[in-house]
Each structure stands twice: as C-alpha cells, then as structure tokens.
Computed example of a mutant assay.
Amino acid sequence: MAVIAVVGGAGAPGATTAALALLLAWPLEPGRRILLVECDPDGGSVLAGALEGRVEAVYGLRNLAVADRRGLLAQTLWDQLIDLSPDGSADRLLLPGLTDPTQAPGLAYTWEPLVETLHGLEPQGYDVILDLGRSGATGPSAVLARRADVVVATLRTTLRGLSAARPRLAALREDLATGGSGADALGLLLIAEGPYSASEVSREFGLATLGLLPHAPRTARVLSDGGDSTDRRFIRSELMRTARSAADQIQLLVRSRRRRLAPTAAEAAAHPQAVPGPAPVEHQLPRAAWQPAQAAQAAHPLAFPPQAAAAYGQAPLAGLAPQPAAPAPFPGQQPQPHQQPEQAGYPQPYPQYQQPEQPEQAETPQHITYGQVLRAR
C-alpha cells in the first residue's frame, strides 16, 4: 500500500522499537506482506536487540551498496531479508541495517535507487516501513523521507523530549514541503511518558497525532532487547493494541493523501513535461531467481538455535515465493557465468564514495548466493 518512514530525535524516543511494533501489528490482508528496512545511518539495532545476536551480521543494507553499483540492487535485496513473522509465513520481513556508522557514506548514491525499488514493491503486495532513526531524515538519506507516503515522528510527551523535537520537526516539515510531497505527510507517534496530552502536543506543533503508545518499558524491552514476541501477554499488551490502532491511522492518512494528490498525478500523466517527477525505475525485481523450486540452493549453514526458532516460527524464509495476487511477475535473471552460487561470497561494505572508481577486476566481493535463508534446527 505505501512506504512509511519512522524518524526519531534527541532523547532516545524509541523509533526502532515503534517501527518494530508497527511491523508486528500491521494489519495484513490475504496475499500482502510488510517489510521493515533499517535505514538509520548510525547503524541498525534489531540484530543485536530483538534478535539477541542469534543472527550473524552477514545480511543487511551494507551489501546493497556494492550490488547497486553492479546494477544488481533489486536482485540482491531478496537475499538479505530475514523472516520475523511468528509463524514463519514470511509475511513480516526485515532488512537489517548497517553494522558500522562508517559504512553510511558508501550508501550516499544508493538511497535514491533503494527507495525507488521499494516503491516498486507495492504492486507485488508489499508495504514498507523505513526506520530512519535520529539522523536518517537529513543528509544524503533525506530522500527516503521525501519519497515516503507518510513520515511518522516519534516523540516522548516530556518537556525535554518535546523541546528537543521542536527544531527538528520544523526543519523536517519545511524539507517535506519544498522537496517532498507536502508537509501534510508528517504526523506524530507519541510515547505517553510525560504529562502532556496528545491534543496538547498536536495543537502546539500543528501536526496530526497518528497514535499514542504507552510508556511500558517492560513490554517494549521485548522489541528493543529481545524476548518472546509470540507470548499471548505480549500480543495482547497495551503497547501492541495501540500500535495496531496507530497502523490503522497511518493507513487512513496514506489513503487521504493519495486521494488529494490524485489530480496532480493525472495531470502529470497527461502532460509529462509540465509536472516534473522522479525518473522511471530501472531496477526490476527478478521473480524466477527466488522461486521455492531452488530450495536445494537455498540451504545455508546459518540457522536459528532452538529457542530462536520457537520465538520466530519453525518455517525458514524459503526464498520469498511470489504472491498469487501479484499482477504480473517480473522477468527472471540468471546468475552470471563467473558468479556460480556455490562459489559466491558475501560482499564487503561499499567503499567511500569520495574514492575514485576501482577497476572491476580489482573488486574482491562477489555476487551474493541466491536464497540465503534461515532454517530452524
């Protein structure tokens, strides 16, 4: 349905925890999936947090920079996903973030093709949540917030949290108005820690409140530091109930904004030179490259230990089979002759973008093996 960006700010407002809560609480119709992408330039935290270090840090955003330079960003994206759905159905997925903030400059030219690729997933039945952290809405990665359908800012309702958020929200609002789809894309997701009500905060900042999450450290610790997300008490907790309500409000905002922007889109289609728009997406997703029939190639030594399998479901990621409801599959792409799956390795982080282009033969990273998956023991 949409690409949703979640941004944080000073005072550790819990952007990643809120994004994970939205991922697990997001209402999914049959045939639809949702993907959480950790785009925080300061580094991702889900692998060491919610997954408690049980998944080796060989998957993630850092591998996409090299792939994008080779024109393989869309193909490599599928090899980096981790299944977070409790039943192993692969309908709630994670693309882990950077493991080192020094890797962020290497993604300076990858952010825009990445968000184009993620927007291209919508016809295939995917919603996308972007965790931008505290600094992902500024600098080279600001294009992620500008291209998002809705930008959700997490705030704590304390005086310190609201005071620190004021200049950040003002700058973000102006940036969305001038470089994005409009300032009305910005909304608030509040954490009720302080004495200020949602109506007071909304009136003070002039922004709509999309949700009010409780200040529940014990429950939130399951998302931030690990725990059993399949436990009935966690699923029925106030945090997850309010996260489901927030997800509904976000979807309503997306629909209302799209209805409002629909005339502009129609005018742009009728007069392509009158209304400038983004360049057409050149990165298409190969469907045949990750069919379940390639299960023999999908075996990977990395697997959940028994306790992790119980927490996140017994079924492996299984190659992310296409949805029956998808309109039309993208054409497949075969691996290059010199990049056989059994010989391929994991790429290394993208070099600093200021450095000159290196000859192709000097690069040590190879194309990523098809079907890197997690199998429960």
Rank of each mutant, 00 (worst) to 15 (best):
A288S: 12
H271A: 12
A142M: 01
T16Q: 13
G194H: 01
S245A: 11
P278M: 06
F330G: 13
G211P: 02
E200P: 03
G179F: 12
A142D: 03
A310Y: 09
Q124W: 07
E112C: 12
R255Y: 02
R69H: 14
D68S: 15
L144K: 00
I250D: 00
Y350S: 15
D248W: 14
H119A: 09
A311S: 10
L130W: 01
V222Y: 14
A183D: 15
T138G: 01
L223A: 05
A15R: 00
R259S: 12
Q284R: 08
L51K: 00
P306I: 13
G9F: 00
P305H: 06
R62P: 03
A18D: 01
G139C: 01
V151Q: 03
A315C: 06
L24A: 08
L24P: 07
R203S: 12
T117H: 03
P349D: 12
L189D: 08
R146P: 04
P327V: 15
L186A: 04
E282D: 09
R255W: 02
A289N: 13
A344F: 06
A216I: 01
T76R: 14
E204H: 12
A90W: 05
Q366C: 09
A171R: 15
P217K: 09
W26E: 06
A10D: 09
W26C: 00
R168M: 04
G182E: 12
T76K: 08
E193R: 15
R70C: 04
A310W: 06
D175R: 10
L320W: 10
A262T: 03
L253H: 10
G9L: 00
E52P: 04
A171W: 14
R287Y: 06
S85N: 03
P365I: 05
A279S: 10
G227Y: 10
Q354S: 14
R32Q: 10
R259F: 05
H215A: 07
E360G: 08
P331A: 13
F304G: 05
E29C: 05
L61N: 04
V151I: 11
T138N: 01
E116H: 15
A148E: 00
A208K: 13
D87A: 10
G14A: 00
Q352E: 12
V201L: 02
F304K: 08
R62G: 13
Y109K: 14
L130E: 02
R70Q: 10
P140Q: 01
Q358V: 09
P329I: 07
P341R: 06
E174Q: 15
L252S: 11
A153W: 00
L189K: 00
L64H: 14
T178F: 13
P195Q: 15
V55D: 02
L61P: 00
P86G: 10
